[in-house]
């Protein structure tokens, strides 16, 4: 059993509404999983529960066999569990260079230093340079993020995740808000992620899902209704019903 990340019987309800019902999931090193589901299925809630931004009613989250259910969000990041956001969250007045350097310094526990500057730290500069080059952001390194295009901001979100060197990365709709014609940029960026990193991606763009994922998990009404290969998911009757309701049968009959 080489699961690096496990979720055991996670439950969450808001008032009488069960948003997450008994969700279990496990990921191994190098996994590429897509988490899909219709709107309101509880995908983002799932990410918030796992990253500690919401407290579950019951269930456990384990990293490398260690129970991190009691950790606050910051400690979970330090344990190697990193997320990205559905809507870009960046520092609009700061440059990509500063963003990535800050993430590297934070990872190395140096972000509290009161003196010095990342420009004078060769290994930080080198790593930052290579991350930005990898994501084709090199030419924008010193432009304030508020002035760069949204698609490039999405790439910077991925750059930040890379700079934190996570063991498990949760990507919440990395291509959201990016024109369909530019999705390939995101896809190329995702292809640059380290091979041994376990990645779970929430995404609505099915082309991206099928090209990226080795495994697809479908969440509907707070439950996992499918967990298997991308090829099998389109034929699954429950998945069709979750997405299409009663039309599923009509279309299959046609």
């Amino acid at each position: 059993m080489s699961a690096i990340f496990e979720v055991e019987r996670l439950k969450k309800s808001f008032g009488g509404l069960d948003v997450t019902k008994d969700v279990s999931l496990s990921m191994a090193k190098g996994d590429r999983i897509a988490l899909i589901g219709p709107n309101g299925a509880g995908k983002t809630t799932f990410v918030n529960l796992v990253t500690g931004h919401l407290q579950p009613n019951s269930g456990r989250v384990l990293m490398d066999g260690e129970d991190i259910s009691k950790f606050n969000p910051m400690r979970r990041v330090k344990a190697g569990l990193v997320r990205s956001f559905q809507v870009t969250r960046l520092f609009s007045e700061m440059t990509p260079e500063e963003h990535v350097a800050l993430a590297i310094l934070q990872r190395e526990g140096k972000s509290g230093r009161l003196a010095g500057n990342f420009h004078a730290m060769p290994q930080v500069m080198r790593e930052m340079g290579s991350i930005l080059e990898t994501l084709n952001l090199g030419t924008l390194a010193t432009v304030p993020v508020g002035e760069i295009a949204y698609g490039q901001q999405r790439l910077l979100e991925i750059a930040l995740a890379m700079a934190l060197r996570p063991k498990v990365l949760l990507l919440d709709e990395p291509a959201a808000g990016v024109p369909h014609s530019d999705t390939f940029l995101i896809e190329n960026a995702l292809a640059q992620l380290p091979d041994d990193l376990a990645v779970l991606m929430i995404e609505h763009d099915m082309d991206l899902v099928f090209r990226f994922a080795k495994r697809v998990v479908v969440l509907a009404a707070g439950e996992i209704i499918f967990d298997g290969s991308p090829r099998a998911v389109t034929d699954d009757a429950r998945v069709r019903e979750a997405y299409l309701g009663s039309y599923a049968h009509a279309s299959s009959a046609a």
């Binding site: 997320r83 956001f85 700061m94 800050l102």
Partner: peptide
């Protein structure tokens, strides 16, 4: 100009992003 100064400017602009970096 220090790393801490940069971190604080980040906090002003988006505290949630800063905590998602583990700070």
């Amino acid at each position: 100009r220090s790393p801490f100064g940069t971190l604080c400017r980040g906090i002003r602009q988006d505290p949630i992003r800063v905590s998602a970096m583990g700070a």
